[in-house]
């Protein structure tokens, strides 16, 4: 296997207005998602379980928005090292947090 060349094409021209627009899109999306999440709970629009599921979904989407527009992480153009790292971290976080919750709930069910 050959090492990836260090330079990947940076398709976007470095345009200040374009990058400013990115931050604006991110900011607006994040505000909307936050408002949706708080509004959902304040309005009691869904039953508890449904509400929790939608909240989780909103949080995941908002995390992705922050990654994309504020941290500028992008599956196509980011450096491969960083992507590997993020994916591996995701796996470890899943194992650690998921495993912990599984174990502690399991124990609690037998107390």
């Amino acid at each position: 296997m050959e090492m990836e060349p260090d330079q990947l094409p940076d398709s976007e021209a470095e345009d200040p207005r374009q990058e400013f627009r990115e931050y604006c899109i991110g900011g607006i999306l994040a505000v909307l998602l936050t408002l949706a999440a708080f509004g959902l709970v304040a309005s009691h629009w869904l039953d508890t379980l449904g509400c929790l599921m939608v909240l989780t979904l909103l949080a995941v989407v908002q995390v992705l928005v922050h990654f994309r527009y504020f941290l500028h992480i992008d599956l196509r153009r980011s450096h491969r090292d960083e992507l590997q790292l993020i994916l591996f971290t995701g796996l470890i976080l899943f194992l650690m947090a998921g495993g912990t919750i599984w174990i502690l709930w399991n124990l609690n069910s037998r107390m």
């Binding site: 470890i92 194992l95 650690m96 495993g99 174990i103 399991n106 124990l107 069910s109 037998r110």
Partner: peptide, 15 residues
């Protein structure tokens, strides 16, 4: 190595 830590406390009382 991140998938096996529970074997240090098999006897703690889980299922």
């Amino acid at each position: 190595s991140f998938c096996v830590w529970l074997h240090h406390f098999f006897t703690m009382g889980e299922t």
